[in-house]
């Protein structure tokens, strides 16, 4: 009798374990997802291929961007997050093409493409080893996703097991939202100008 109960308990335990394993099997996309390299806003973050540091974060309801002598206003139903950073390649020439704003609720917001022609935007220039370059990023995110967010930067969104900088945005607060930010064309060494109202 005791043997039968033990046997039944064993079968039930095995079934429970199998069910648990089936439910928690990571997706293939999770297994090959980029390897995070943690860092914080205002500090230099070193991955094996590139280094990046976030200098300033500006929050605004509107962005005015001038290009080719014309100024256009870009509104949003959320908040504009404009990030000024600097990046350099370490061993090989490379381009950074992937940036995401990971909100506290786990949703990833892609880089805004609305003024992607702005000089200095992420992906517009190839990085060379030993030559740090300023880099601009723009996101449109809901107001609730500002504080407690993480900025994810990688060479490309698709490379399996490549490193990705995970920069904790420690100094982003909803009370710092400005009415508007104006982006203009800069020079060769500082490709844009930024004025906050």
């Amino acid at each position: 009798m005791i043997g039968a109960i033990k046997g039944l308990a064993g079968v039930l335990l095995a079934a429970a374990m199998l069910y648990g394993m089936q439910r928690t099997t990571p997706l293939y996309s999770d297994i090959i997802s980029p390897v995070p390299v943690a860092g914080r806003q205002g500090e230099r973050v070193d991955t094996s291929a590139f280094a990046i540091g976030v200098a300033d974060v500006h929050l605004a309801r509107e962005v005015m961007a001038s290009s080719f002598g014309r100024t256009r206003t870009y509104t949003t139903s959320g908040v504009w997050v404009i990030i000024e950073a600097a990046a350099a390649a370490k061993q090989e020439s490379l381009s950074l093409t992937s940036a995401k704003w990971l909100g506290p609720n786990g949703v990833r917001h892609a880089l805004s493409q609305r003024f992607s022609a702005m000089s200095g935007m992420l992906g517009s220039e190839r990085l060379e080893p030993g030559i740090p370059r300023p880099m601009l990023m723009a996101f449109e995110v809901p107001e609730s996703q500002l504080s407690g967010a993480t900025l994810l930067i990688a060479r490309s969104a698709l490379t399996p097991l490549a490193e990705e900088a995970w920069i904790e945005m420690t100094d982003v607060r909803a009370q710092d939202i400005r009415p508007a930010v104006t982006l203009g064309r800069g020079n060769r060494s500082q490709p844009w100008t930024l004025e906050a109202e």
């Binding site: 370490k90 061993q91 020439s93 190839r126 060379e128 080893p129």
Partner: peptide
């Protein structure tokens, strides 16, 4: 390339 193994395209 240079002696540090850096490589420019």
């Amino acid at each position: 390339t240079d002696d540090w193994g850096r490589r420019w395209e």
